[in-house]
């Protein structure tokens, strides 16, 4: 069953095309990694799917229904969102941040109740940060904050989570914590994840764990390659899109499972910045 279907979508800002002819499906319990150079239109595409922007042409179907026919509240019950960096402002308690995920279930002028707090506590547990519950979130590290925001998305109880480069500001450990949590959500809760990333090894991480993951490589304002990480993240395609030389390795992980990963070797013809 497809949770997201995008059909020949295109979008322009003030007459300048950002992407065109985008097609993909994301099934329930699947992961789609949106991968591509800076400025290739990943974030704009995500904004279209979140309903913040409207595609010029084409259609976006969320869980069997045209995106434009959802209300603000309804779409928030289908899709939760984790930004690249959450800009912290006021020193709220962690639990009060997480319970904000319950907003699409509250009637317009009410506040979250006991049940909402229980769901929020459960979300903290799923994100593995129960111990942060009563802390002021302005005093957390960037990595902890990102897990709080993930917990907030979980409290939203949506079948789809969209993440925009969620690990780009995290240290090695927190990056792994985030990936593990996301993998667990797909395995145990059958959530669908659409994630944009700059790290091809994220896609390999999910593939190495045996999860149904596909990669959509964006360049030239469209998706030029689509398939399993093994098919799309190859030395040849990385050279074509990023103009870099890379090496893909396969090693043996725990219990003799195969592990694939990619290592950058060097920039090909420097001064020439990739595909465009």
């Amino acid at each position: 069953m497809n949770m997201i279907s995008v059909r020949s979508a295109s979008f322009s800002y003030d007459g300048v095309n950002v992407f065109h002819d985008i097609n993909f499906d994301l099934e329930q319990g699947g992961i789609l990694c949106l991968f591509g150079p800076n400025g290739c239109g990943k974030t704009t595409l995500l904004d279209n799917i979140l309903g913040h922007l409207e595609p010029e042409e084409g259609s976006i179907i969320i869980d069997g229904k045209e995106l434009g026919r959802y209300s603000h509240r309804e779409i928030a019950r289908k899709i939760a969102y984790v930004p690249q960096v959450h800009e912290r402002t006021f020193p709220y308690r962690v639990i009060d941040i997480v319970v904000m995920g319950r907003t699409p279930y509250l009637s317009p002028y009410s506040s979250p109740g006991r049940e909402d707090y229980m769901i929020a506590e459960n979300a903290l547990e799923m994100a593995g940060i129960t111990q942060l519950k009563d802390r002021l979130y302005t005093r957390l590290s960037g990595g902890e904050t990102q897990l709080v925001i993930l917990a907030r998305a979980l409290a939203q109880n949506a079948p789809i989570i969209i993440m925009d480069e969620p690990a780009s500001h995290l240290d090695f450990r927190h990056e792994l914590l985030l990936l593990e949590t996301v993998a667990g959500l797909v395995e145990k809760n059958n959530l669908s994840i659409l994630v944009s990333t700059h790290s091809p090894n994220h896609a390999f991480y999910f593939e190495n764990r045996g999860l149904p993951v596909r990669v959509a490589m964006m360049a030239e304002r469209r998706i030029i390659f689509m398939g399993t990480p093994g098919d799309v993240i190859t030395e040849e395609k990385m050279k074509r899109v990023f103009n870099i030389n890379t090496k893909v390795f396969t090693g043996n992980g725990a219990e003799n499972s195969k592990m694939k990963f990619i290592v950058p070797v060097g920039a090909a013809n420097r001064g020439d910045s990739g595909e465009e």
Partner: peptide, 23 residues
């Protein structure tokens, strides 16, 4: 007084507030 919960959510920034279901 009626909007006070939504002011919390609005203080998360436009993009996040919208993704949590606010108009």
């Amino acid at each position: 007084m009626l909007m006070r919960w939504r002011i919390n959510v609005l203080s998360m920034g436009d993009r996040e507030a919208r993704s949590m279901g606010l108009n």
